Amino acid sequence: MGGCFLDVKVTGEGKFAGDVDCLSFSLTGNSGISGSLRTEKLKLTGEIEVKERLTAGALHGQGEIKCGSLSAERFKLSGDLEVSGDCEAEKLQMTGALRVGRLLNADNLELVLFGPSRSSEVGGGSITIKRSKAGALLKQVQPKEILFTARVIEGDQVDIQNTCAEVVRGENVIIGADCEIGIVEYRGKLEIHKSATVKQQVKVTK
């Protein structure tokens, strides 16, 4: 059953039919929600699947999240994130792999790649995408490249590595190691690593 609750604590396995609205949601194990989840605080150790929208004030933990769309003020996860629609946060810190179907947007985005990741579009204030040192070791034994792939990345401050994108736009842009970029549009400063490929760079006058 869904419904409104103060605090929800799941240890083991828990399934909810319909929407869940609560102050806090603590999960150790795995849980499935057939509707939406709205909570002030989500603490995760395990796996959760929300068929529709996941809304949280603060979300942190380790494990796997799958949802239709995601909105959070503060988001910190080590693991795997899959969002079929939009993913929005004020501050988003992710170590692992993510797949976002539409827009990934955050005022402050910090992504440490541990596996192949992608989003259709990325927007925000400060955007940092890097590959973890452990991920660099994994690359030696895994045939797949640990890359972040996007159509468009646009932010005020952009600092990216191991990224493949058609367009990157920003005030100050750092194109780091192992990037493949179609066009970079920048207004302030641009740095390009020697191992990166940028087909076209355009300085936009203010």
Rank of each mutant, 00 (worst) to 15 (best):
Y186G: 03
V168C: 02
I181K: 01
I183W: 08
A165G: 07
T197R: 11
G176D: 01
K194N: 13
N172I: 09
E171K: 14
G188R: 09
N162S: 10
R187W: 04
I181W: 00
L190S: 05
E166R: 14
C164S: 12
L190R: 05
I174L: 15
T163F: 00
H193M: 05
G182A: 10
C164H: 14
N172V: 11
A196P: 09
T197V: 09
V173Q: 01
N172F: 10
I174N: 14
K189I: 11
H193G: 05
H193N: 13
V168F: 06
I174Y: 13
G170Q: 01
N162K: 04
I181V: 02
E191G: 11
V184E: 04
A196V: 08
V173W: 02
R169A: 10
S195R: 10
E171F: 11
V184N: 00
Y186K: 01
A196S: 10
E191M: 10
L190W: 06
N172H: 12
I192A: 04
I183L: 13
E185P: 08
K194L: 11
N162M: 06
L190V: 00
C179A: 07
N172Q: 02
K189D: 13
Q161I: 03
G176W: 00
G170F: 05
V184G: 00
G170I: 10
N162C: 11
E185F: 15
D178V: 02
I183R: 15
E166D: 15
C179T: 01
V168R: 00
I181Y: 00
V168N: 03
Y186S: 06
A177R: 08
N162P: 03
E185V: 09
S195Q: 10
Y186A: 03
E166C: 07
E191A: 14
H193Y: 09
V198M: 04
G182T: 00
T197D: 06
L190K: 05
A177N: 07
C164K: 11
V168D: 01
A177Q: 08
D178Q: 12
G188S: 09
N162R: 05
C179L: 05
Q161F: 12
A165S: 08
K189T: 15
V173A: 00
Q161L: 08
N162H: 12
G182L: 12
S195E: 13
V167L: 14
I175Y: 01
E180Y: 10
G176L: 02
I183H: 13
G188H: 12
D178K: 12
E166K: 12
E180Q: 15
V168T: 01
E185T: 07
A165K: 02
N162D: 14
K189Y: 07
K194Q: 15
R169S: 10
V184L: 01
K189V: 12
L190N: 07
N172A: 11
K194C: 06
